[in-house]
Simulated scan of single mutants.
Amino acid sequence: MIDLKTLSRGEIGDLFQKMGLPEFRVSQLIHWMYEKNAASIDDITEFSKPLRETLKGFSYIGSVKILKKTTSPDGTIKLLFGLEDGLSVEGVLIPDEYRLTLCVSSQVGCAMGCRFCLTATMGLVRNLRADEIAGQITAVRRELQAQGGISGGEITNIVFMGMGEPLRNFDGVVRGIHILTEFMGISKRRITLSTAGVVPELQRLYREIPEVNLAVSLNATTDETRSALMPVNNKYNIGALLRACGRLPISSRRRITFGYVLLKGINDTPADARRLIALLKGLSAKVNLIPFNTYDAAKFEPPDEQTVLEFQQILIDRHVTAFIRKSMGREIYAACGQLKTCHETASP
């Protein structure tokens, strides 16, 4: 059986041509799968019943399902998505006054080994296909539309900040983003891709999809500390990463976001803040300060609020745009990897 969602527009066109179907049927199928969120061929009422039966004889519309959903008092919704092979990945739906942002995964697990990340303890199982990446958005859209489902309107922004390193699944992620933009109506400028710093793929990313926003997980101001936290730094150190960022063809009106997870006693000192200012000099940059979101058996702690505020103020005083990203969803295991771990531990 062919999963129609694994096919490109050209592949659907070739298939329908062999069936003797007109070109407009291709557009109709894509519209129903990606805009009307059809869960099955039977949902496509624009197709005649005989055509639906013919298609069902050799194909189907694959889907990502929501296995578990937990809602925090602050409105954050943590989602566990089930894939057709029985594996699962996580997502987070984050509402604020102006946006409804969905954080999606690009891999089952992760091979990057970042010491502060629970997902890193799982290792890498496999890359997600493009249709599985898009399927996370479709699953949430269905839930938003369903009576009694998630409330909060339409998804406005997509961030690749869930499980996995997007640039280690480059082809799947790029094709997934093309599905989001070409078939699902999501602007590239409302998509943010977060990377731990896979330097060779950064230039390639901006050749393929230059309009997407980039977030780089920096998390330290010396190679010694960053290598201890993020093994990727042993291959692509801070200097190499920032030089690569400086070469990206980013317009003067846009900035790279540098994520900085604040860890108590590790990278949260005034000296770290001053080194961060020096590192980012000359770059079109802004900083997201992220107090560590702890989990069971974590080896790190978040700094106290005063330390976080002082770190931010040092940056602001030197004209570096710095935001403190509120840790949302602490009550619902919103740190990446927590919900999946809890679900699998509780499963028989």
Rank of each mutant, 00 (worst) to 15 (best):
T294M: 08
R207G: 12
N234C: 12
R325D: 07
T71R: 14
G164H: 07
A130W: 04
Q306C: 10
E154H: 12
I266F: 11
G172M: 01
M33T: 01
D272P: 02
V140W: 08
C342D: 15
K286L: 10
K36M: 07
E132D: 08
E224S: 12
F58M: 10
A322W: 04
G246Y: 03
G197F: 09
D304P: 01
S251C: 07
C114T: 06
E301A: 15
F116S: 06
L229Y: 07
I290T: 01
L339H: 08
A240K: 15
L102S: 07
A334P: 06
R247S: 13
K56I: 03
L7T: 11
L15Q: 05
L242K: 04
L279M: 08
L180F: 12
L144T: 00
A335T: 11
K188Y: 07
D131K: 13
R255Q: 14
D3A: 00
K235P: 02
T101S: 13
T71N: 09
E165F: 08
S227A: 15
G153M: 09
L144I: 13
H343V: 01
N219D: 15
N234F: 12
K78T: 03
V26D: 11
E132H: 10
T321A: 12
N293S: 06
I316Q: 05
L263E: 08
T307Q: 15
F258G: 02
C245M: 00
V261G: 00
L100T: 05
L280G: 10
M161T: 11
F258S: 05
I186L: 13
I277P: 00
L193H: 09
N213H: 13
I179T: 06
R9S: 09
N37Y: 03
L15T: 08
P95V: 11
N127I: 05
T70K: 14
G153H: 09
K68T: 08
L7I: 04
A139L: 06
D272G: 05
P270A: 14
G149F: 03
T76Q: 07
E301M: 11
S72M: 09
C342S: 13
V173I: 04
L241E: 01
E35R: 15
E143S: 15
K235W: 02
D14R: 13
P270Y: 12
A298D: 13
E344R: 13
R9Y: 08
A38H: 06
K286Q: 13
L280E: 02
L102Q: 08
K68Y: 03
K78S: 01
L15G: 03
T192R: 03
Q28K: 10
Q313A: 14
N288Q: 05
T6F: 02
G75E: 02
D74M: 05
L144R: 15
V159D: 04
S217P: 05
L180H: 11
M230K: 00
A120H: 01
P200D: 11
Y60Q: 07
I41S: 05
A134I: 00
F24W: 14
G329P: 05
C245Q: 03
G153K: 12
G91P: 02
Q145R: 13
S63A: 14
G20P: 10
